[in-house]
Write a protein that binds this DNA or RNA. Sequence first.
DNA 1: TTGTAAGCGTTATCAG
DNA 2: CTGATAACGCTTACAA
Lengths: 343, 343
Amino acid sequence: MVTIKDVAREAGVSVATVSRVWNGSAVVSDATRSRVEAVTSRLGYVPNSAARSLITSRTSTIGVLLPDLHGEFFSELIRGIDQSVRRSGFHLLLSSSHSDGAEVDVALRSMRGRVDGLIVMSTHAEARAAMRQLPPAFPVVALNAIVDGATTVLTIQNYEGARAMVRHLIALGHGPIAMIGGPIDNDDAAERRRGFRDALRESGRSHDLAMEVSGVFDEASGYRATTELLRRPTRPRAIFAANDAMAIGAISALHEHGLDVPGDVAVAGFDDIPMARYMSPSLSTVHVNIPALGERAAQRLLEAIEPTDGKALQQPKRPTRREAMKTTLVIRSSCGAAHKTDA
Amino acid sequence: MVTIKDVAREAGVSVATVSRVWNGSAVVSDATRSRVEAVTSRLGYVPNSAARSLITSRTSTIGVLLPDLHGEFFSELIRGIDQSVRRSGFHLLLSSSHSDGAEVDVALRSMRGRVDGLIVMSTHAEARAAMRQLPPAFPVVALNAIVDGATTVLTIQNYEGARAMVRHLIALGHGPIAMIGGPIDNDDAAERRRGFRDALRESGRSHDLAMEVSGVFDEASGYRATTELLRRPTRPRAIFAANDAMAIGAISALHEHGLDVPGDVAVAGFDDIPMARYMSPSLSTVHVNIPALGERAAQRLLEAIEPTDGKALQQPKRPTRREAMKTTLVIRSSCGAAHKTDA
DNA sequence: TTGTAAGCGTTATCAG
DNA sequence: CTGATAACGCTTACAA
């Protein structure tokens, strides 16, 4: 492995100078700079990141903690994050499948020192506890209601989107409307359920509240939930699933029962995963710009890591305490049919 | 930040002893061990990974280079990788969206020193060139035909699967069979196309070869390709798409043209993404165990990183040269209808 | 069984 | 503008 010493020796300068050239910062004469650069590329020198982060205590890496990796939601999310992150020359350390909160604790601990900041999506109470273990000023962006120790909380307009969609379904016809909710301990799911209930209540149809079942955000559970719904005495006129995956499962079940979608039963979902566009014209969905969610989360995190990029505006004193940075951002959601608009 | 020194001082031992306790290896008296462990957890000490990998030149991290992140294929793949990797206490550094080969080069360079091994999926010629820049013995698992410098190449039975599926479609009826192929520069796509052609040739229907269009492995291009197919004088009796995403796009297009699937036109895909099960009974697909692909890739890589886990069998001399480890593994694919078997 | 001390490759603080 | 040199936190011979 070729080190900074090799470059220094070969270029006839000190390691300090090579270092200065490499991170462009200091004042180096053009002559030496170009000489060092020549040697650098000739030797194929790449600075050792471990040594670097040992002394700077920065890793140029952000960690992403996800509960799961099933379905298109998460890949779209990661895609957005990846985009922001690489644009800033950072790396992405991914850890997933944190079904229970204890695992989050382990993951969090094992990531310590390997990342400069964290994007966390988890609903578990243990996760919140684990986050409290982090150094007080450690930059964290939470992708749901975990507030403790999070620099920023980024949420989706779950309530608004769900409410709008259910209103839309109500306008569609007269029969009862069912909801396939998400897991009970999931904050997003809870908000969507609240939107559903409120929309019904507002239209004076609280009796429809009875038609609620739940799933776990995947196609299989949407399928099962629908099968269960169809066993009931009254058949729903419309089904609102808490995400698109369950909605697709629902459509599948309805078709198998010889029901027409949306003729007999209308189906609506949430998220607007790319695939949803190709279930048309059967599926309406609440649009969420998932990659944008990821992108904004990453951007926010990077801002927290590097306070003021420091080119133009050099603020003499840091005016904002970390506390003051705590913000809640929102990703807007809008309701409508899925369209193949992307061409 | 609490360091090894703090623990040492607090426990009344030397840093060497703490280190020995921490990595369990050496012989430490039970008394001191427990004392150190107590202090360790009391202080919440976590070893600094940068310092650690500076001295050991191991990072406990593997890098994953992906061309893209669209669709379920990649998230399923990552899921499999993540599972193996975390089981071994390793971390996962993800880098995606390497549309062009030059980017792969940059990514590869920037990952140097941050990972102990690499899983690479890329078809670009530049990528192959970039891989040659890596240290000769650096562990790499390639997920397609990139052979240069790869410790292991892991491929899917593209040819066999495609051929079997097309035979199946031929058995289904009499009309022409069309194929929506993948990108021309993609090795997997090429093999699937070859399977398609051979199956037709074997059945003496080489004239059907004319019905070939291509897409880029997403729903939109499958949709477009199908629309194009339907503009031709002869309508295909069956469409074989090189992956499920395009097959789903195809189904969508067919429906919009008022065609029944599989009544008027049968549709088949490749990959068996979870979603495919919920397009039934319309969609047949070539089953590939995608998470297993990821899992095996990661396992293979980890083996290459840690040659013999070193508990029971302590081989006195390393018998295998790195060269000898070059292997080609294959993930079997089987053809059939998509079923909601996972319950 | 434990301690001492020499690095690992960088960056940063001083002098020059 | 450049060069020594002291850290950074940890592992690992080598001594004791």
